[in-house]
Amino acid sequence: MNTQDNLKRHPGEETGQDLNVLALVCNWCTYTAADLAGVTRLKYPTQVKLIRFMCTGMIDVRYILRCFLEGADGVFIGGCHPGDCHYLSGNLKARVRIKGLRPVLEMAGIPEQRLRLSWIGASEGKKLQEELTGFTSEVRKLGPASFRQMHLV
């Protein structure tokens, strides 16, 4: 494990080991966009691990909490644009849930910048790249999350 000082200099930034960014994305839009980004050979940070869900509406807030408690430095949620959800309104449900979750994260000392909700349509491979790159560098500014090494109750 790295010491706090080492982490400040971002060792492993090249190899993608300095940060854990989890991207919970919906199957129909954002995952398809990621696939498209791959097809069109767009690169996004290696720190990002994509986890595919059928719909952002099925993302239980507990999954997000679990991500942070298990040491994620950032959690990115990508879904269809409002009105575009394959299941009509899953993305709107995700939006409300995340709105309600923010104060909980604040109480847990997790800065709100570590959780981002973004709408990325199936043909927006470019936007996926920009969003993930932007989010990763924002998370990098905050440094590694404390829960990563802390022994939790």
Partner: peptide
């Protein structure tokens, strides 16, 4: 890429209902 009147896509929705939940990556 994007179609009126919501200016987004949604093409995946014409898949028959009984397979949408069982098809991954069904753009």
């Amino acid at each position: 890429d994007r179609q009126f009147p919501d200016n987004h896509c949604g093409l995946c929705r014409i898949l028959p209902g009984d397979i949408t939940g069982r098809v991954w990556n069904a753009c």
